[in-house]
Nucleic acid binder design. Sequence first.
DNA 1: AAAATAAAAGACAAACATATCTTTTATTTT
DNA 2: AAAATAAAAGATATGTTTGTCTTTTATTTT
Lengths: 145, 145
Amino acid sequence: MGVFSKTCEYAIRSVFFIAHRTASGNKVGIKEIANGIDSPEHFLAKILQDLSRKGIVLSAKGPNGGFYLDDVARKRPLSDVVEAVDGNSIFTGCGLGLANCSETNPCPLHHEFKAIRNQLKDLLEQTTIADFSESLNLGITKLRK
Amino acid sequence: MGVFSKTCEYAIRSVFFIAHRTASGNKVGIKEIANGIDSPEHFLAKILQDLSRKGIVLSAKGPNGGFYLDDVARKRPLSDVVEAVDGNSIFTGCGLGLANCSETNPCPLHHEFKAIRNQLKDLLEQTTIADFSESLNLGITKLRK
DNA sequence: AAAATAAAAGACAAACATATCTTTTATTTT
DNA sequence: AAAATAAAAGATATGTTTGTCTTTTATTTT
């Protein structure tokens, strides 16, 4: 089990891919995205529909349509993508799954986990979708296989 | 979705509970454990059967039987428990789910994730089951609700 | 030896995550 | 207006995780 759900992994990868491919105002279709990030096309379509409804990605129907990001969407932190798909439990939940775990009523791992969670939180909140485009442009990082 | 699977959460909580309750050579039954950590009894039974087979916990059948830990088992790092249940993907897997992600072929989040994963790895490898007994004894930490 | 106890094992069920396929709606191009 | 395009929506399927119930095996007590 990863840190994110499979759905969320596809979501992040697709958002990176869309940002990378639509930098100059164009759009990219679902088939191309699915191929570009190596994901099941129809499953990804569902995910992008959801992200579109929530305003994380933009979309246009018809010829020359597809998915894209405007400047506002590009500058959203990764945490917005994660939260849209997996909710905020990753930022707040107890490591041992206890519902009432808190500072005053902690589980044995509470404090140790807080440090790790905060580091993840900071990473996701302090980087934007756009931040990862350059290394993709340069071919230094990749989104499939 | 938590960092660990539900199964693994129950496993860790039960191992802490057993360590806490069997410090002086006695044993504790499945009903008492399930109640003590607020988990489904029969589901936990399966988990403990598995942990028993793998030598993480010890068990004895019959009257006055139950689950317990000896000194060796008490001193095992938490990483052994996690690995027995969830495997080692949590220590090695790519944050974006890419099979071939590596140092030389990284995903966009590779380096950032490595830091977080290593912190988790260190936490789990450097603490033992026994390390958490004292705060449980003192009632400072808890394993249910 | 018989009865009682408690884990081990097996079969099954429900819920959720993941994946596939088809139809509909909106938009653009001709 | 008709045809083509592409996302949106709906229905269905598969797989995995989580959870429940029953039977069996091993051990101890009487």
